[in-house]
């Protein structure tokens, strides 16, 4: 019976998250459209509201082309790795008090592990396609993920030190219920590092080098089509949501808000996550792309020292207070 409940919960979560993903694409296209003096999708449904569904159906029924020279099993498997790891990390995210599938006490580490695994999907996709652009895209992605995993992890060490836990629910509850007790303020350096590393980790502008359209055509997804392409796309958006959730949980006080919304406790959580996603989109519409060596420089020479400094300051703070 308990297993059935869990399966039901998983199913509900998946459906809700995938719907959110679908509408996050709509959200992105509309916002970027309006930022770029155009309309965005308008034709399918009222103001294009059914566009994500039409896109989903289209990509589902599209021909799935596999290059003759590709490493077939890996080529087929790579997008699945990306999507599954991203979906798995959703399990430990608390959407509201008690609204979590698996309240494990290494939640944060689990998410890091999963997001590192997702990069295997990207690298394998780049390698298995046996095309030069995808290969370069895969290489870039590998280098980028390795370099930015470190500042991403280090930037959250401060949060761990303050809350004394890796459990995401504990991190939220330890931030208290008021605005001023959010970890954003004591951890402002950590938040800065986290935000930039988060952009890089999800391959978003200005760090979208693995799929830099004007350099590598489409990077590691050049050879993919139809549903497999859509899987990568979904993985990217779920990755965005997971990262935004981590940011919300660790720095913005999770589901806590100025007042409680009856019957729908995750309201503030979702609002904050969408706030993050809006920032993602805003940055995409504004910034150009970094060059490969500049990206490395930023990661290793700026973000890692800053994250280490943040850990040092947090440690000193803790020693002085106690």
């Amino acid at each position: 019976m308990q297993i059935l409940t869990i399966i039901l919960q998983i199913a509900i979560l998946l459906v809700i998250v995938l719907l959110h993903v679908a509408y996050a694409t709509y959200f992105e296209r509309k916002i970027i459209g309006h930022m770029q003096v155009r309309m965005g999708p308008m034709l399918v449904g009222y103001h294009g509201l059914l566009q994500p569904i039409a896109d989903g159906i289209k990509s589902f029924f599209k021909e799935d082309v596999i290059p003759a020279q590709a490493d077939k099993p890996l080529f087929l498997f790579a997008p699945v790795i990306c999507l599954v790891t991203m979906l798995t990390s959703l399990a430990v995210i608390p959407f509201a008090k008690g609204w979590v599938l698996a309240d494990i006490n290494i939640g944060l580490l689990f998410i890091f592990a999963m997001s590192s695994l997702a990069s295997y999907g990207v690298i394998l996709a780049g390698w298995a396609s046996n095309s030069k652009y995808t290969f370069l895209g895969g290489l870039r992605s590998m280098a980028q993920v390795i370099s930015y995993e470190i500042p991403l992890g280090l930037s959250l060490v401060g949060v761990m030190m303050l809350s004394g836990s890796l459990n995401l629910t504990t991190i939220v509850t330890s931030q208290g219920n008021s605005f001023s007790s959010m970890y954003l303020f004591p951890q402002i350096i950590g938040f800065f590092v986290f935000f930039i590393a988060m952009l890089a980790e999800t391959n978003r502008v200005p760090f979208d080098l693995p799929e830099a359209e004007t350099e590598l055509v489409s990077g590691y997804i050049t050879e993919y089509s139809g549903m497999r392409y859509a899987l990568f796309f979904m993985a990217e958006y779920i990755g965005m949501m997971v990262m935004a959730s981590i940011g919300t949980i660790c720095f913005l006080g999770g589901w806590n808000g100025p007042f409680e919304i009856p019957f729908f406790p995750p309201f503030w959580f979702i609002l904050k996550v969408y706030g993050f996603i809006f920032f993602f989109i805003w940055i995409r519409a504004t910034l150009p792309r970094y060059r490969y060596d500049q990206l490395m420089e930023l990661g290793w020479k700026l973000l890692i020292p800053l994250a280490l400094l943040n850990i040092l300051l947090t440690g000193l703070f803790k020693i002085l207070v106690h």
């Binding site: 930022m35 770029q36 003096v37 004007t214």
Partner: peptide, 16 residues
């Protein structure tokens, strides 16, 4: 040129 470097919005502003 801006699109090549990655700045997408300039592209549409110019086309306007």
């Amino acid at each position: 040129h801006a699109l090549d470097i990655g700045a997408m919005t300039v592209f549409l502003y110019c086309f306007r």
